[in-house]
Amino acid sequence: ETDTDTVALVRNNLGYFLTYENLYSTWRDLGNDFSIAHVRYGLATFKRNIAPERKHVFDGILNTLDTSLSKLGTTDAARTSAIKKLLDLIDDIPTDGKQGYDVLGYIYEYLIEKFAANAGKKAGEFYTPHEVSLIMSNIVADHLKGRDEIQIYDPTSGSGSLLLNIGEAVAKR
C-alpha cells in the first residue's frame, strides 16, 4: 500500500486493491505461521482499498465471511485450523484451464445441487440436475441448428445453468 501510484492504478481498473500479504498464495506460503488474524487483517485491508466510486459494488460483499468467522470454532486456533483446511481444499481445485470445463461454474453447480438435496422439497423442488440440463440442452441445440439467430426463454432461470448449457450446446453445432 505504500506505492500509492500502483494502488491507485489497480483500484481504478478493478475497483479494489489487494495487498501482496493478503493474496492466497502468500497465505499458503506462510504454512504453520498462517492464522485467522491474517484473514481478519485481509478483510479490513480489502474494505479500506475499495475505490470510492465502486463502494456500491464491493462494499459488504465479504460481510458474511467476516461475521461467520466466529462460527468456524470456539477459539482462534480452531478457526485457524478450519481456514487452513479450506485453503487445502482450494489448493486441490484445478485452475490451469486444462480440464475443459468452467471450474467455478462446476463448483457453484455442485453446491447448488447439495443445497437442493439437503433443503428438502421447498428449496430444492425447482433444481434441475446437471445431467438432465445437458440432455435438454442438446435436444434444444439440435432443434435450433442452422439458425443465424436464436432466442431462448427459461421462465424458471434460477442459477442460469440451463441457459449456459444451451449456449454451449448451440455453439458446438
Rank of each mutant, 00 (worst) to 15 (best):
G160L: 11
G124W: 00
K121A: 11
S161T: 10
I150F: 08
L65Q: 11
T75R: 08
Y108H: 15
A141T: 07
V57A: 09
A119E: 12
Y101H: 10
T128E: 01
R79A: 07
D59H: 06
E109Y: 05
D142H: 09
I139Q: 07
I135Q: 14
E131G: 03
G124Y: 00
E131Y: 02
G60Q: 04
F115V: 08
G160R: 11
Y127E: 12
A78R: 06
A82L: 03
G97R: 05
S68Y: 01
S81N: 12
S159P: 14
T95G: 15
D66I: 00
A117T: 10
V140S: 12
R79G: 03
V57S: 07
F126D: 12
R147W: 00
T74N: 14
Y153M: 15
H130V: 12
A141Y: 03
Q151I: 06
P52F: 02
K85R: 13
N118A: 09
E109W: 02
S133D: 11
Y108F: 11
R54I: 00
V57T: 14
E113H: 02
S161G: 14
N63G: 00
L86G: 08
D102R: 07
D148R: 11
V57H: 10
G120W: 01
G73Q: 06
P129M: 03
A123L: 15
K114L: 13
A123D: 11
P52K: 04
I150K: 06
K98I: 01
F58P: 06
N63F: 01
A51M: 02
G60R: 03
V170Y: 09
E168L: 12
S133M: 12
N165D: 13
